[in-house]
Structure formats: C-alpha cells, structure tokens
Deep mutational scan, measured.
Amino acid sequence: MQIFVKTATGKTITLEVEPSDTIENVKAKIQDKEGIPPDQQRLAFAGKQLEDGRTLSDYNIQKESTLHLALR
C-alpha cells in the first residue's frame, strides 16, 4: 500500500509499505529515499509519536495515510 510522509520542510515522500511493516522498517525506507538516518527520525500520526517496534497496523495506519516526520 502507499503512504505519504510529510517532512518538516513541507516535502511529501511517497512510500510503498505493508500494514505489517514496523515503524523501524518505514524509517529505513525513508533513509533509502532521503538519506536521513533512522535514529534522527521521529514519526507521528494523528498526533501520536510512533514507536520503532510497533507496526503500521498497530496504529491503524491505512493506505494513503500521511505520517509526519520530524528530525531530532
């Protein structure tokens, strides 16, 4: 499925993911596309910060959802 990640600079990244993917996997995909190390990424959805060990389906993130990326 496709999801979107909006960066602090307003850029939107499109990612191909599975509901079973962990947040860690998603951060690795962002690193592949943007070169941002996962340990510098903070992802949020619906106002909640997402934890590495959880999956997209844990957070009820569905196709075409938009996550927000902040850098630490």
Rank of each mutant, 00 (worst) to 15 (best):
S57T: 11
S20L: 12
A44I: 07
E64F: 09
T7K: 09
K33P: 02
H68Y: 10
S65W: 07
R72C: 04
K27A: 02
T14R: 12
I3E: 00
P19H: 14
L56H: 00
A70L: 06
V26N: 00
L67C: 02
E24S: 11
V17I: 10
A46T: 07
E24A: 06
I3P: 00
G10N: 13
D58L: 05
N60G: 10
T7R: 05
A28N: 13
K27C: 02
Q41A: 03
P38K: 13
Q62A: 15
V26K: 00
V5P: 00
S20I: 12
V26R: 00
S65Q: 15
R72E: 13
I23Y: 02
P37S: 11
R72D: 15
R72I: 13
H68T: 10
A46H: 08
K6C: 03
N25A: 09
L67I: 14
A8R: 07
Q2T: 14
L15N: 00
V5Y: 02
E34W: 05
T22K: 08
E18I: 10
N60R: 15
S65M: 08
R42I: 14
T55S: 11
K29I: 08
R42W: 05
H68D: 13
Q40K: 09
D21H: 11
T22L: 08
E16A: 13
P38R: 15
L69W: 02
K11S: 13
T9K: 06
D39F: 08
L69H: 02
K63M: 13
A8W: 10
D21K: 02
D32G: 12
L56G: 00
K6G: 05
T55V: 11
I3Q: 00
K48C: 04
I61S: 01
V17L: 11
D58K: 04
H68E: 12
H68A: 05
L50D: 00
F4R: 05
E34Y: 08
I61L: 05
P38T: 15
I13E: 02
S65P: 02
K63N: 06
V5M: 03
P37C: 04
N25F: 14
Q31F: 12
Q31I: 02
V17T: 04
D39W: 10
P38H: 15
A8S: 12
K33F: 14
M1G: 03
I30A: 01
L71D: 14
